[in-house]
Amino acid sequence: MDRNEKHITTPLTDETVRSLHAGDQVRITGVIYTARDAAHKKLAELLAAGESLPFDPAGQIIYYTGPTPAPPGRPIGSCGPTTSYRMDRYTPALLAAGLKGMIGKGRRGQAVLDAIRENTCVYFSAEGGCGALLANYVKRCDVVAFPELGTEAVHRLEVENFPVSVFCDWTGELYSPYL
């Protein structure tokens, strides 16, 4: 195991979030929820209307991905991260509602970085373009909201040792080998 590799389970507590530092290699086990562009728009509309979300965001992680259909005998198809900045407009409201973590790829805007600090959250990066590899760490996949969105529906994933790294930690420190 990598010297700096850490294992965490969901849902996340503030204590867990504070134990993670920019650049750490992290393995996630537990439940995570998928949402990308179209689902974020719907989640934001629900929050703005004061309605409850289809899952309780408290302590949870959202993974920005839209998987390919599961072939026979597998729980999910290819499921790598999509580019995160497209979700920036919707993110601060979700973090204020209790969401603790996000998994995606690439840079975030300043408003998101500020919201990460203010709410003690963490933004993880998964290896972009490696959806076939990352599918191996997903043990179960169920659609829990917005099935009409197809790949963009909210899926509940059960993951084991899902590999990510910390791109932005709760103090706002950033790490990427490409920055």
């Binding site: 991905t65 839209g66 998987p67 390919t68 072939p71 597998r74 198809g77 290819s78 499921c79 790598g80 999509t82 290896e127 373009g129 490696c130 959806g131 076939a132 590899l133 599918a135 191996n136 790949t151 590999p163």
Partner: peptide, 20 residues
């Protein structure tokens, strides 16, 4: 990059990337 090499060497007959 070892992740990327593993991804295309052992993709298990599913798309290399979810964005087809």
């Amino acid at each position: 990059n070892p992740y990327i090499i593993e991804n295309f060497e052992k993709n298990g007959n599913i798309p290399l990337c979810q964005d087809t």
